[in-house]
Amino acid sequence: MYVKRDASGGIEMVSREARADCSEWLDADSPELVAFLGGEAAEPAALQASDLELVRVLEDLVEVLTDKGVIRFTDLPDAAQKKLLGRKDLRASAQRLSLVEDDEGLL
């Protein structure tokens, strides 16, 4: 979204297209823009939760495709590789923490 600011630096106007009076770009989910538009997130909570679930599905899909040799992990863009590896590490860490907590509970 493109915004126009008032003299104090606050958002005064928003446009989907760049115009002479709205030339500064802000991401649609920027906290400042969300606050200006009424404080509500652009997506309902159910849609956001669904997005998080879909992310895991896509991660699993990439893993299946690479395991079957349909694609190579290195065929993915560098940014995608880094994000997938980062999430894989986070899940592994969370699993290790979960196992430690379970072991402590058995004692």
Rank of each mutant, 00 (worst) to 15 (best):
M1T: 06
M1I: 08
M1Y: 08
Y2I: 00
V3C: 01
V3W: 00
V3E: 00
R5Y: 10
D6P: 07
A7C: 06
G9M: 11
G10R: 14
G10D: 12
I11R: 00
M13G: 02
M13H: 08
M13I: 01
V14E: 00
V14I: 09
V14W: 00
S15P: 01
E17S: 12
E17H: 04
A18G: 10
R19T: 15
D21R: 03
D21K: 05
D21N: 03
C22D: 02
C22K: 02
S23G: 04
E24C: 06
W25I: 05
A28D: 13
D29Y: 15
S30G: 07
S30N: 15
P31T: 04
E32N: 08
E32M: 09
L33S: 06
V34L: 12
V34C: 09
V34K: 03
L37Q: 01
G38L: 04
G38E: 03
G38A: 07
G39C: 07
G39Y: 02
E40F: 13
E40T: 11
E40Q: 14
E40M: 10
P44H: 10
P44A: 13
P44E: 12
P44N: 10
A45P: 06
A45M: 09
A46E: 12
L47Q: 15
L47D: 15
Q48V: 15
Q48P: 03
S50I: 06
S50E: 12
D51A: 12
L52M: 11
L52C: 09
E53W: 08
L54H: 04
L54G: 01
V55P: 01
R56P: 06
L58Y: 04
L58G: 02
L58M: 12
L58T: 04
L58V: 13
E59C: 15
E63G: 05
V64I: 15
L65E: 04
L65Y: 05
T66L: 03
T66I: 06
D67H: 07
K68Y: 10
G69M: 06
V70T: 06
I71Q: 01
I71K: 01
I71G: 00
I71A: 00
I71M: 02
R72M: 12
F73W: 01
T74W: 04
D75N: 14
D75S: 14
L76R: 00
P77C: 08
D78N: 08
D78K: 11
D78Q: 12
A79W: 10
A79T: 10
A79C: 07
A80G: 00
A80N: 07
Q81E: 02
Q81W: 04
K82L: 13
K82C: 04
K82V: 12
K83Q: 09
G86N: 09
G86S: 10
R87Q: 03
K88W: 12
K88C: 03
K88I: 05
D89F: 08
D89E: 10
L90S: 05
L90W: 13
L90H: 08
L90D: 08
R91H: 08
R91C: 01
R91E: 03
R91M: 04
S93A: 14
S93H: 12
A94M: 03
Q95E: 15
Q95L: 15
R96T: 13
S98M: 06
L99W: 05
E101A: 10
D102R: 14
D103P: 00
D103H: 11
E104A: 09
G105M: 07
G105N: 10
G105V: 02
